[in-house]
């Protein structure tokens, strides 16, 4: 049929079939559009309003992005396995309030211990999600929608009307989001280290690669001998751990934590991952992309303010950005599918 003409025509136009050139593979990076968008956004904004790139401006940008970045990295792990975790906002809320309570109950506890406790708490909540999903074999969307409500309800019951303010915490803890090291706020450095560790894990280790295999074809992954359940559980535990870390950092960064802390954050997190080129149906995308996606989403808000765009337009623009990311991803996948088809047809 038309198969012949289709496969024959591009055969002449794409001679370098054997090994893709460095430039070619660079241009095909899924993260490239979002990085470009970020660069253009920052450049245009800085050209119009130079204050945008002042030391304080950059510091604010990074501080705003830090928490969403960590959450997006955790979410990426889960989405890559073809699952989703909608409960991260509630986990963050619980841990943030828990952090506030710890400082009130035990003011002399070392800050490192508070971090460890918060992360363990988050990991436990993530493990609950993961166990429900892997043991009962129930879709993640349903379970995490349920735990979104349960965790939020627990924090409502626990916190009631109580709020903890910055004054309730040791200064050293609050200073984490004020002090800078080489111009970077300390909590941002923590986020960058986390991104780097998880990125290396996903790129270079067996379990990390397994997550991609599970996401692109769960049945094949099982046949291949990958312990699918254990890996998916791992993804949820790590996601919970990172949400716990984000919760502790939230308590450091923001003035008050209470019952509603972090509510509604889950869709922002998924949006950041999607904007960063993580395919919503699993199997592709990188931690780095998701982190840049988070940075882009938060930078847009600041940029629009710096450009004196009506603040009411911000959310609409974020929506358009998400849709653009989905469309770009679609175009890329159509093109790569076509290329694969042609390559297969030529091999036959």
């Amino acid at each position: 049929m038309s198969l012949d003409s289709k496969s024959a025509a591009p055969a002449h136009t794409t001679p370098g079939h054997g090994r893709p050139s460095a430039l070619g593979s660079f241009l095909k990076l899924r993260e490239l559009p979002v990085v470009l968008a970020l660069v253009v956004l920052v450049a245009v904004t800085a050209a119009i309003n130079p204050l945008f790139l002042s030391a304080q401006g950059i510091k604010d940008l990074l501080l705003n992005a830090t928490i969403l970045m960590i959450l997006a990295v955790g979410q990426t792990l889960v989405i890559i396995t073809r699952n989703v975790d909608l409960s991260v906002g509630s986990i963050l809320g619980l841990v943030a309030f828990g952090t506030g309570s710890i400082f009130v109950a035990a003011p002399n506890l070392p800050i490192v211990a508070v971090f460890v406790l918060g992360m363990l708490f988050g990991a436990a909540l993530g493990a609950l999600n993961g166990l429900l999903i892997t043991i009962a074999k129930v879709p993640a969307l349903v379970i995490t929608l349920g735990t979104l409500y349960i965790f939020r309800g627990i924090s409502n019951a626990w916190a009631g009307g109580t709020q903890y303010f910055a004054g309730d915490r040791p200064d050293a803890f609050g200073n984490l989001s004020v002090d800078t090291f080489l111009g970077f706020p300390v909590i941002t450095l923590i986020a960058v280290v986390v991104v780097a560790i998880v990125a290396v894990y996903m790129l270079g280790t067996r379990p990390g690669r397994d997550l991609y295999a599970i996401g692109s074809e769960p049945d094949a992954a099982r046949l291949f001998g990958i312990p699918v359940q254990r890996r998916v559980l791992l993804a949820f535990v790590v996601n919970g751990l990172l949400a716990g870390l984000a919760g502790v950092l939230y308590a450091s960064r923001f003035n008050s934590v209470g019952a509603t802390t972090g509510s509604g954050l889950e869709l922002d997190v998924v949006a950041a991952a999607v904007v960063g080129g993580v395919a919503i149906f699993g199997g592709s995308g990188t931690v780095f992309g998701a982190a840049i996606g988070a940075l882009l989403l938060t930078t847009i808000t600041s940029a629009l303010t710096a450009l004196r765009v009506d603040k009411f337009w911000q959310q609409a623009i974020v929506g358009i950005l998400i849709l653009a990311a989905v469309v770009i991803d679609r175009i890329a996948s159509v093109r790569s599918a076509r290329k694969l088809r042609i390559a297969e047809a030529r091999n036959v």
Partner: peptide
Amino acid sequence: LIAYLGLPSLAVTIGTLALFRGLALV
């Protein structure tokens, strides 16, 4: 977007969730 362009509905409607709420603000 979903039916004719074949985009995943979860991702598209997260986008329009933000877009329509944003338009309401506008």
